[in-house]
């Protein structure tokens, strides 16, 4: 059997996903047996022009991590779509928008103002902003256009599969690669993970009927290691998050933050967690309820930490 041709790419991301692909450990040898890497900017030296030259659909599969926030990401997404038989949105950024997607609470100008003018360490009295084209003595320089709105990969090009996680757990990455190597492809659009249920299913903590009188941030309490974190007032996103990760965070006494995205069939993970949380608040008194809710710092960023671009909201409306 001919070896698979594999491409990996990063757009708006932190680089964690690229590292996560290496986290498969010694299984990388199995991968090397089965596949050749034809494009992987973070690890090997390729030029975009190299990719442009190869024929369409000549790459068997591309693991694309990172959200689409500028013209470069969009261009390469289109390029790799054309060149790949299978395009996989790998990791939360390309699947749902993730942390870069929180930029959708602002717009380009607000972000530039913050980054190039307002931060305490910035000294920019002439208010120089990045320009996509600039003339220098050597000629015209070009950098990518920065967009107002962060998009997911699937909002940019047609995507075949999704691999959740920020970053994906080792076993999830291997499940995806194994699927490709063995050619046992799921129906188009599938989210590749070991579970269709929420994280709670894999979390060994004891779960009871839920009533919460006060929410805490993780640093404020030392939670009981046996009992459901949500019942202890920690904003554990487990009930609203797809499992398959094996619930490592709650087992390390840290609440789930929702990185594996919505459970199969859920439209808008943030809204689902929000209504679930509203349902466990143990009070009928509006003032007390308001007080309890006020404990939640940065609700928009908490509920939509990983999924704002992919949510029904998509972005904030800026007047």
């Amino acid at each position: 059997m001919a070896k698979l041709k594999l491409a990996l790419y990063w757009a708006a991301s932190c680089g964690g996903c690229d590292i996560a692909t290496l986290a498969i450990g010694e299984k990388i040898l199995k991968l090397a047996e089965a596949a050749d890497i034809v494009f992987w900017p973070v690890a090997m030296d390729f030029k975009y022009s190299d990719v442009e030259k190869i024929p369409d659909k000549s790459i068997d599969a591309c693991l694309f991590n990172g959200a689409i926030q500028n013209s470069e990401g969009e261009h390469i997404a289109q390029l790799l779509r054309a060149k790949s038989k299978i395009l996989i949105a790998y990791g939360s950024c390309s699947y749902e928008g993730c942390i870069p997607g929180l930029a959708n609470f602002f717009n380009r100008q607000m972000i530039f103002d913050r980054v190039y003018i307002e931060t305490q360490s910035t000294d920019n009295p002439e208010k120089v902003y990045p320009q996509s084209k600039v003339l220098v003595p050597e000629g015209e320089l070009e950098i990518p256009d920065f967009y107002d709105t962060v998009k997911t990969l699937a909002q940019t090009v047609d995507v075949d599969y999704f691999v959740p996680g920020c970053p994906p757990e080792e076993k999830t990455t291997w499940l995806a690669l194994e699927t490709l190597i063995e050619g046992k492809l799921p129906p188009k659009g599938a989210v590749i993970s070991h579970s269709v249920k929420a994280v709670c299913d894999e979390c060994p903590r004891i779960k009871k009927e839920k009533k919460v009188k006060k929410f805490y941030r993780p640093y404020e309490i030392i939670p009981d290691p046996e009992i459901c974190l949500l019942e202890q007032g920690l904003l554990c996103y487990g009930p609203a998050t797809r499992g398959g990760c094996g619930a490592p965070c709650p087992q390390a006494n840290m609440p789930c933050t929702g990185c594996y995205g919505p459970v199969e069939g859920v439209v808008d993970q943030g809204a689902h967690f929000l209504t679930a949380l509203a349902s466990v608040i143990d009070s009928d008194d509006p003032t007390e309820i308001q007080r309890i809710i006020n404990d939640i710092v940065d609700p928009a960023g908490t509920f939509y930490r990983y999924s704002l671009p992919d949510s029904l909201l998509r972005r904030a409306r800026i007047k």
Binding site: A198, K211, S279
Partner: peptide, 10 residues
């Protein structure tokens, strides 16, 4: 699909 989180119970 139920993960047994028990949010609905009460």
């Amino acid at each position: 699909k139920c993960s047994g989180c028990r949010i609905c119970n009460l």
